[in-house]
Amino acid sequence: MRRPRTGVLALLLPAVLLPAACGVRPSGVVEVGDPALVQTVPDAAHGGVAVYLKGPDGVLPVIRDTEGKATAGRAVMMLFDGPRDADRAAGLTSELPSYFGAMGMELDGTTVRITVYRPVRDFSAVARQQLSCTAAHAREDSGAVTVVLKGNDTTLTLERCPF
């Protein structure tokens, strides 16, 4: 009884190893390393500001050329201008209403206060995020900025931009 069993075991060893043997086998999904990093044209130093629009998977930045006047106020004004044809062609939209009225902007440390003269309570979550991210990245690269939005109905402290 003992001998055949040993023999079978000896024969099994290569048999166990063989199935994993030949050719290139499929694999699961493997994550390796960082994502690719690119720079935009024009960048912030050359008057580019990021305006956040709604894409298929959340808000995305598009770069507007301010021709040298890259300020936070300008960025927020360009956001209120809404998406352009090229943005729409790529499926980007904005949930902010068009607003061409007066706008106040106050910078206080890491806090940006924006004052618009219209109701802001009905701004959707995406709209608030668009505003928060646009204001934050126009102000500072890190985006660690608190944005306070004051309308003529209420004052909202917007959630920080996640990026």
Binding site: R25, E31, G33
Partner: peptide
Amino acid sequence: NPHGTFQRVVKDGKPWLTMGMPVRLGK
């Protein structure tokens, strides 16, 4: 996830390497 990913797939007996690379803004 903000990571490069890859997967080996075999289609019709031919092996392929498929990669996905999310692109982010930054330096």
